[in-house]
Amino acid sequence: MKKLLTVFLFAYLFKLTAWGQPAPAAPLKNAPAKLPRAADGKPDLTGIWQAFGVALFGETGELRPGEGTKSVWGPPVGPAPYRADLAAKVKALASDDRLNPQVQCKMAGVPRITGSVVPFEIIQTPKKIAILYESNHTFRIIPIDKPHPTDMYPAYMGDSVGRWEGDTFVVDVTSFNDVTWLPGPGHFHSEDLHVTERYTLQPDNTIYYEAIMEDPKVLTKPWSYRLILRHTPRDERIMETDCAENNQDPQHIIPAPVP
């Protein structure tokens, strides 16, 4: 009987972690000692990174030896757990891409920007980590072991503070405006959005990225977004983009029927 209870307990725990809930700490494939480290001993996140995308590998689909073809990690993530009474709003927004904040050339927000098809650069110091995104020339400066300011104002990219939990860099992001979307079509959020990002460097020099999104006004439970970030294959520089300079799209988009 005791054995049976243990089996049920394990099954229950597995179910809790397998569907959109915060995953356990990213598994390291080898001994952490093999990680590239900064002078202060922390894993070295410095460099140009990108989630899997066209610009990273080129259109020939080139892959570097040893990196495999995986683009996500962890247990499967279910659909965004929107409140039932908001499902129609999500569908309506998703059906008309003119309403997509990125079509309107707005900053992509967190964590959507991490999945952009253009790269970003991490600059790491013991006291601050800066992320310079090519997407819309956006940046975040993340103080380490500091509290959020008390006079925060709603912002596209929110306000970020970071801390090291072992070898994982954890970023707490709050003070969002309600203009950006979460990953996925029509995935609006409220100003109560709270994002916890986890950047875990792997021995193969990739980063397992997880963003846990909580927004009690629109989501019924936390939702996860996971990516594998890779260094770009060539010596890249973050380039300038100004999305609004010649944005012809909104006037040519044909809305789809709302399902």
């Binding site: 989630a51 899997f52 995308g53 066209v54 590998f57 259109e59 020939t60 689909g61 073809t69 683009s71 996500v72 891409d97 003119r98 997509n100 990125q102 079509v103 992509a108 959507r112 920007i113 999945g115 952009s116 098809v117 997407s135 990953p183 996925g184 079509p185 995935h187 977004y225 990516l227 999305c243 799209d249 040519h252 988009i253 044909i254 809305p255 789809a256």
Partner: peptide, 22 residues
């Protein structure tokens, strides 16, 4: 391979607009 990976990418990647919108 690239097409397969991209088609399975779903909401992970974020471009300026969806192809089907235009």
């Amino acid at each position: 391979l690239l097409s397969l990976l991209l088609s399975s990418a779903g909401l992970r990647l974020s471009a300026h607009h969806s192809f089907a919108a235009e």
